[in-house]
Amino acid sequence: MFQSRKIFLALLFVTASASSAPQSGIIEGNLPANVAQLKAQMTYPDAWLSGNYHDFTQWQQHARGLLRSALLTPESHRAFSPQTVAEEDRGSYVAQKVALNITDDNRINALMLTPKSSGPHPAIVLLHDHGSKFDIGKEKVIRPWNDAEKLTSAQAWADKFFTGRFIGDELAKRGYVVIAIDSTGWGERGPMVYEQQQALASNYFNLGRSLAGEMAYEDTRTVDFLASLNNVDPQRIGVLGFSMGGFRAWQLAALSDKVAATAVISWFGTYDGLMQPGNNVLRGQSAFYMLHPGMPAHLDIPDIASIAAPKPMLIYSGDKDKLFPPQAVKDAYAKVHKVWASQNAEDKLITKSWPELGHVFYKEQQDEVFPWLDKWLKP
């Protein structure tokens, strides 16, 4: 009897010891060991699809306020004070390098293309990608001049991702005023190296700011700048971005009610679908340009994009894009379609996955996107 009691107590001790043993802190993909428990808590209570809201306009204002607060960036009040520093005639349009106060803290150079025809014109904010290529930013989408080395680099990028075209120049030929700026770290605001990104993001937090927030806020200021120009119709401003620029595009549409139409190329999914071992968002570094503290506790990626509803939005992905798993994209598409449908605006939302394409914005895609923009911005 005594021996049986000793065995029973020993088993209790072993069981208790096993249950109280600490977990490993980190698992595959640099994820915390309790990732399953944390993901289960991501119920997105502030989403329109949560059922917690009944007035779409009020929800939109609430959700936009959450996102704006997460930027950790104060409002800017300085005049833009633009100044042309270089210019090139391109036939039906003029290319300019323009210096402007993008925020109270930053005066930067932008590239602008302006048709020679009489305005006011529709306009496009072009948002460059990441690509771990920092020597060029705005030049990835608008052809540079007076710099042979930069032009060679930009043309090689256009050849790789855009079938040799400069997206901005193609749009200017169609009658749009086009603008592109460098995000912090690219082009004339860099160039940095890949390993600097994490420290840069950390130091923004040390300064009470956010790297992702600064990028997002500067994009909204770019729209505001276009809307202030006499030769631009402020009711017909669209945004277009590829890769990280696609992320910036739907984010900008969510932040600014001045955006009339949005084209998103190769950056869409759900948090759950993207937070899988091997995915780029788990690597740190470049991910910090797209991380707003606390937002995933409130809204999923398609929930944020849906703040722009019921305005026109087009979202393209490639099924062979290794950065964005098809299921993650499909789940995100389903969410945004539910939101636009709830506002009787499904005709204003286009989503498409290209079976044979990867992480690119090729001519065949452009040939669908450009007329779609015309439909909404050049009625």
Rank of each mutant, 00 (worst) to 15 (best):
D272G: 11
Y333S: 04
F324V: 02
D224P: 05
F242C: 03
F288L: 13
L274P: 03
L299G: 00
D321M: 04
H337V: 13
I315V: 11
A297Q: 13
M244L: 12
G245Y: 02
L229Q: 14
Y316W: 14
T220S: 00
A227G: 10
V239E: 05
N280E: 15
P302I: 05
K322G: 05
K320L: 15
S317N: 14
P325C: 09
L274Y: 07
K338V: 02
E214P: 04
A261P: 04
D303Y: 06
A297N: 13
A254L: 08
F225I: 04
T270K: 06
K322L: 12
F247C: 05
L274R: 09
P302N: 07
I237V: 14
F242A: 07
A253Y: 03
P302A: 05
M313L: 06
K311V: 01
K311I: 02
A334Q: 14
D331W: 08
D219E: 12
D257N: 15
P302C: 09
A328D: 03
T220P: 00
G273H: 00
G278H: 14
A260I: 02
M290E: 12
L255R: 13
D319V: 14
F225H: 02
W267V: 12
S256A: 03
D331M: 07
V223H: 03
A227C: 13
A254E: 04
P310R: 10
D272N: 11
G294H: 08
N230C: 01
A308I: 01
G273C: 03
K322V: 12
F324H: 08
K258W: 01
A297I: 04
V339H: 04
D233T: 00
M244R: 08
I315W: 05
I315F: 00
Y271N: 12
L252H: 10
V281S: 14
I304W: 02
S228M: 10
D300P: 02
L274S: 10
D272I: 11
K330H: 11
Q251V: 13
L240G: 06
F247M: 09
